[in-house]
Computed example of a mutant assay.
Amino acid sequence: MKKELHIFFTSLMFYTRIPCPKNIDHHPDYLNKATRYFPLIGWIVGTISFSIFYISSLFLSVEIAVIMAIIASVLTTGAFHEDGFADVCDGFGGGWTKEKILLIMKDSAIGAYGAIGVVLLFLLKYKLLSDSIVLLQTSDTNTIFKVYLLFISAHALSRLAAITIIFTHEYSRNDATSKSKPIAKNYTWKEVLGAFFFGLLPLLALAFFHYKTLLALIPVFIIRYFLARYFQKWIGGYTGDCLGATQQVCEIIYYLSLLFLWKFI
């Protein structure tokens, strides 16, 4: 149990800005195992984001409450995944060889592709999440609980989609300059089982109220497949930035899928 707590806190420290015990560090062995808890981190981020949404919605409109919730999630993770998305936009938008793409993504400065991409990403996330919540609020019962499940299922499932790339593809960089390299070396059935358990459980809970929600798995993992294929084609695998971008894109696709399912099917 003590070792599992250490692994969990390693994952929490790596993926968020939440304070952890002082003895926790980026030890490669624990980082390898921390992948099993990546979707569980989505539960935590989603819970914090939902809490801010709920408190804000008591005094403000749904739209403003959603903005506050997005800000909360960004602050909780330190824009970890959004930064990866911006780097991927810059790297694949401005690079035409593997070496150039990796070099651009390694640059801490954000370029035009990254800036435009992040703006459009947040606009989509704001609108899709707002509309999804409004649809849920038309339900007769358990509205708040359903909104909570919406938040944590989006964060958990999108992180599951991202982390599965580690299970199916190779890390692209040949050097050890990226913090994400240690988690790319080894994994066991425990990491795979843990990731899927924590990644799918909130979705199954939401599907208890809206069974059509399960169909959202299809577009999410279709997009995950094509993103991984795209990364493989251009850089021969993935980087930490690619995982962050996959998480953000799959979160958007999840909201979009739910809106379509709840409105038209």
Rank of each mutant, 00 (worst) to 15 (best):
F231G: 01
E99C: 04
V62I: 15
I52Q: 08
F122R: 10
K185F: 12
T143I: 14
A65M: 10
G114H: 04
F14G: 02
L261T: 05
I144K: 09
G236M: 06
M13A: 15
T143M: 12
F167I: 12
T97N: 04
N186K: 15
T177N: 12
T168A: 13
F8S: 02
I253P: 06
S73Y: 04
D107N: 14
I218T: 09
T16I: 10
S178L: 14
H81N: 03
S11T: 01
L58Q: 12
S61Y: 10
H27D: 14
G46Q: 07
I265H: 13
I64H: 05
I71Q: 08
E191Q: 15
D241R: 03
I152M: 02
A195W: 00
G117C: 12
D131Q: 15
M13E: 08
S108R: 12
L135Y: 06
V249N: 07
R159E: 03
Y148T: 00
F14R: 03
D175C: 13
K146N: 10
A216M: 10
L128N: 05
T16N: 08
E4P: 03
I48D: 02
P39C: 08
Y187H: 15
A176F: 14
D175R: 13
N32W: 06
H155V: 08
G84R: 00
Y113Q: 06
I133E: 05
A245S: 15
V134T: 12
A65P: 07
V118Y: 08
S132F: 08
L215S: 00
I18K: 09
T213I: 06
T138F: 11
V118R: 05
K146T: 05
Y126A: 08
F264L: 15
T138G: 06
T76R: 00
H26C: 03
L149R: 00
S180E: 10
T143R: 13
T138M: 13
A207K: 03
V119A: 15
D87P: 02
I24Y: 11
I101E: 04
T47W: 07
A162G: 05
I71F: 06
Y238S: 03
D29T: 01
I52V: 15
R17Q: 15
H155A: 11
H26R: 12
V45M: 09
K3H: 12
L256D: 04
D241F: 01
A112G: 10
G237H: 02
W43L: 10
L58E: 11
S11V: 05
K233V: 05
Y211D: 07
S11L: 07
I44E: 07
S51R: 06
I183S: 00
S57D: 08
G42Y: 01
K190M: 12
L243R: 08
S57Q: 13
A72N: 11
K233S: 10
